[in-house]
Write a protein that binds this DNA or RNA. Sequence first.
DNA 1: CGTTGTTTATGCAATA
DNA 2: TATTGCATAAACAACG
Length: 160
Amino acid sequence: MPRPCRESYGDQKPPYSYISLTAMAIWSSPDKMLPLADIYRFISDRFPYYRRNTQRWQNSLRHNLSFNDCFVKIPRRPDRPGKGAYWTLHPAALDMFENGSFLRRRKRFKLPKPEEDKEKRKRPAPFSIESIMSDSRPAASKQLHYLPNLYGPFRFDSCK
DNA sequence: CGTTGTTTATGCAATA
DNA sequence: TATTGCATAAACAACG
């Protein structure tokens, strides 16, 4: 079963979920993180189907970004002003589509519920990758003021 | 204002 | 057949 990642679907709806499409967009970026508008652009650039009804699918896409724990929002730096934040993938969600389907995952990636008592005082280093993984706060209150270097050489040009 | 995020709700279809 | 993942709609806050 061919799984072309580029084009050739014409005006037909590509066999990918919004989560897949978004993950593809993020994967494709050099820094493995993109602002919303760039995710839009990635999708509509190579899938003609998504050049219409933008209001509808972009709303759905935004819903997915907020709703799914597999997407992590990384705030902009003050020295890199712009509209929204950067979106990236949760490190524990990289094998999300290990079934190869890209339509429906076996299981939805979900962070543990706010069982606040669990690791109350086991504070890992605030900038370590462990602190991301163990962050079980609701998405709304989650704020990552750091850059997981796991995502490769991310540089703001004036990062010194 | 338009864009970006957050959240709740409903219905459908695939899976177990 | 019950559960779960997904698509869509919609209301709304926040931000530049």
